[in-house]
Simulated scan of single mutants.
Amino acid sequence: MRLSPTTWLERERAHHERADALTAEHRARASRRETHPVWDFLFTYYSYKPAQLRRWHPGAGVELEDAGERRTWRWYSPGTTPDGAVPDAAGFAAEKPELAGLVERMLRRTASRPGQFGCFGLHEWAMVYRADEHRHAVPLRLGQAGTDLVVESHELRCTHFDAFRFFTPDAVPRNRTPLTRDDQPLFEQPGCLHAGMDLYKWALKLGPLVPGELLLDAFELARDIRLLDMEAAPYDLSAWGVVPVPIETPEGKAEYVRRQRGFAERGAALRARLLESWLGADALMAV
């Protein structure tokens, strides 16, 4: 596929406008040196700046006519037209074989598994279980004793290592499955909120191989999931307008699972689009 300058410059312009709208509040807070316990996560934990989200790419194998300076950008190769350039999946794989292999394994294996919907967001509770100090300077909605009781009355079923690694020492042995970094591809599953949020991370790691529109779709999913993650957390975030989803109650559990399933469906569609845009339609046959 080839895109004329008229076409791709318009797509780039629309991308800039959408990205700017998505990051406007964060950039305004940053200019005032203000922090936010919910939304900063998207820019601190993932450590990607708004400028990276703003950069548009056409996706692997899509040639830009009259590409200008993009011809010198990383993981772009010369196109078939004068001054053309195309994001090069083979070049990326040759330069970053370990990263390419990891991203493909994570996307394929997660897509191949059924979703699990019995964790109820207790990973955040496990991060403060029996703790004298907490990662966030925010009061606990049920207090420390009430929070600990919720953890003790449930089975911890976390499948995501990057959440599990923040469990307190007392919470670690309470998890149904011990998790390690090396085993992460073995346990990641599409019902996990963090597996859905991580689609944004994988999209950014693939750089120009992912269409800009898909990158912003992944960011929007991560944003929406982050809100539920904090609504179901043990923190009292009422000062920031966050209404809790009380997962310690049957009603709260039901709401959490309902929304969790919706995010899993959105994540499955994005996961398929990432594989197809990066590796081609044949990649989906192997999922």
Rank of each mutant, 00 (worst) to 15 (best):
R54W: 12
D88F: 15
Q116M: 09
A137S: 14
R108S: 03
H57L: 05
T72V: 03
G84A: 15
R135W: 06
Y76H: 14
G118Y: 15
T81H: 12
P82C: 11
Y129C: 09
V103P: 04
L64C: 00
R130H: 08
F92Q: 10
V62I: 07
A60V: 03
R55S: 02
P82A: 13
R130I: 05
E63F: 06
H123L: 12
E65P: 04
V128H: 01
T80F: 08
W56P: 05
S77I: 04
W73N: 10
H134Q: 02
G59D: 01
F92K: 07
A89V: 05
W75I: 07
R71D: 03
R74H: 08
T81C: 13
P114S: 14
R105Q: 15
T81G: 12
M127Q: 14
R55H: 04
R54M: 05
R105P: 06
R70W: 14
G101C: 09
R71Y: 04
A100F: 09
A111R: 11
G61Q: 05
A100L: 11
W125T: 01
G91L: 14
D66L: 10
A111Y: 06
T110E: 05
A90M: 13
T72G: 09
R113Q: 10
W125N: 03
P78E: 10
R109E: 03
P58K: 04
L122V: 06
W125R: 05
K96G: 00
F92G: 03
R109S: 00
W75R: 02
V103L: 15
A137W: 01
P114V: 05
P114K: 07
G84P: 03
Q116H: 15
E98I: 08
S77W: 08
R105L: 12
E95H: 11
R113N: 12
H136T: 00
P58I: 00
D83K: 12
F117S: 07
Q116D: 13
T72A: 10
F117L: 15
R109W: 07
P78N: 09
D66H: 11
R108I: 00
T81S: 14
A85M: 09
A67K: 12
G59I: 02
A93P: 00
L99C: 01
P58Q: 09
E98F: 06
R109D: 02
R135L: 11
R113D: 05
H57R: 11
C119M: 15
